[in-house]
Design a protein around this nucleic acid. Structure first.
Length: 376
RNA sequence: GUGGGUGUAGCUCAGUUGGCAGAGCACUAGGUUGUGGUCCUGGUUGUCGCGGGUUCGACCCCCGUCACUCACC
């Protein structure tokens, strides 16, 4: 069961705009999450490098799993046998599962789209498999996902109008089929639809119209941050978000940088996920209130300060930049954990501050301050 | 002492018939947006052991010399 409550709409105004930032909460079977929210990505049932306690410390309210990956390994049967994803990974808070649609985009060489669904080869062993909009929903039901995503067709940038229209039409048909299947199986009002339409506004309009006719409890905007310039991503999001019902959560998939989150919250988006904080942590890029740093840079060799003086995360409370640089350059496993804890803490703390600011009618002020601290 | 081998980037080593001195690692900088990511892309670094010679031209051929190393006395 899923319920969204819109607690507040900002409506704050500045010289240049009126904020559409929203404050809300989503109730799920495994607890309530506060929006706007950032959801750490735990593709194979693990937010890479960190534990449940680390996630709690970072302030994670909900994490993602991925249908494609979990279906291939360990397999739906294994997870079903072990009582579902929550029991399996020992996470008793909400979980959202992506449908696998994005993997068929990012692993395009291994996937073939038909009206029925997607034929694909495993990236692990090359074995052949098939996902339909129905099976994608069925797998997510076995996983016990709190928020399930419809199977969609995501395109990269650039894509022409014809290709975009084809992907949009298929996404809508699949959304309808997934929804019908889910109703038939007694689904608990927790399946989201995904808007496509690429970089064409009239196609975004069409996709939003078609999908909002289906009574999904929430909507995602897919097909953004797939290689287009940031300004274009903003333009498309700004255009598409108002097309979605106000009384339902809005989720922009796969986005983004801290700046992206601030901007998109301002436009009225409620939910985000992105691999950036976790992946970049493992590759040495750390987020701070003043911008990003590469912890492996020589200038940190003798630096006794924490990553960010204003950060209260475990890593910043205990370790110096010099030590973190050493750990990273030595390929020590601890580097991955400490860096990931910091980056996720930064992202989740940013969202907490955003929620607080909206609540206090200070969002635009917060946004101004957010940018003023940045060096680059 | 005699004979052989090896000396090229910080390290380990390629370098064709004599024709602009290279790779990997290291170092250094950048990238990463619904996770095939310990990943990807760039950049810096040379008295080619040293001294002569031959040649239009030498890391390469010749002579000498030094260091290291192996074998045998």
């Amino acid at each position: 069961m899923l319920e969204f409550e819109l607690l507040k709409e900002s409506g704050e105004t500045s010289d240049t705009n009126t904020s559409r930032a929203r404050l809300g909460q989503v109730k799920t079977d495994h607890g309530t999450i506060q929006t706007p929210i950032f959801m750490p990505v735990g593709t194979v049932g693990s937010v890479k490098a960190i534990s449940k306690e680390d996630l709690d410390h970072c302030g994670a309210q909900i994490i993602l799993g991925n249908t494609y990956h979990l279906y291939l390994r360990p397999g739906t049967e294994v997870i079903g046998h072990l009582g579902g994803l929550h029991d399996f990974v020992a996470w008793d808070k909400p979980m959202l599962t992506d449908s696998g649609g994005f993997q068929f985009f990012s692993l395009a060489k291994l996937a073939k789209f038909t009206d029925e669904g997607v034929n694909f080869q495993s990236h692990i062993d090359g074995s052949r498999h098939f996902f339909s909009p129905e099976s994608a929903v069925e797998i997510q039901m076995v996983l016990g996902s709190d928020i399930m995503m419809s199977l969609d067709w995501c395109l990269g940038h650039p894509a022409n109008e014809k290709q975009t229209m084809e992907a949009l039409t298929k996404t809508t048909n699949w959304a309808r089929r997934g929804y019908d299947f889910w109703k038939e199986k007694g689904g608990q009002n927790n399946l989201f639809g995904i808007i496509q339409g690429g970089m064409f506004k009239h196609l975004r309009t069409l996709s939003a119209q078609q999908l909002t006719e289906i009574d999904f409890p929430g909507f995602a905007i897919g097909g953004l941050s797939v290689g287009e310039p940031t300004e274009l991503m903003y333009e498309m999001a700004d255009y598409t978000l108002p097309l979605l019902p106000k009384n339902k959560p809005r989720y922009i998939m796969g986005v983004g940088t801290p700046e992206n989150l601030v901007e998109l919250v301002d436009m009225g988006c409620d939910m985000f996920d992105c691999v950036m904080p976790s992946r970049n942590a493992r590759n040495g890029q750390l987020f701070t209130s003043r911008g990003t740093i590469n912890i492996y840079n020589a200038k940190f060799r003798l630096d006794k300060d924490p990553i960010d003086e204003t950060c209260h995360c475990y890593t910043c409370q205990n370790y110096s930049r010099a030590y973190l640089r050493h750990l990273y350059k030595s390929r020590e496993l601890l580097a991955y954990r400490l860096n990931t804890i910091h980056n996720l803490y930064y992202y989740l703390d940013l969202m907490a501050k955003i929620r607080h600011a909206i609540k206090e009618d200070q969002f635009l002020e917060f946004k101004k301050e957010f940018y003023s601290k940045r060096i680059s």
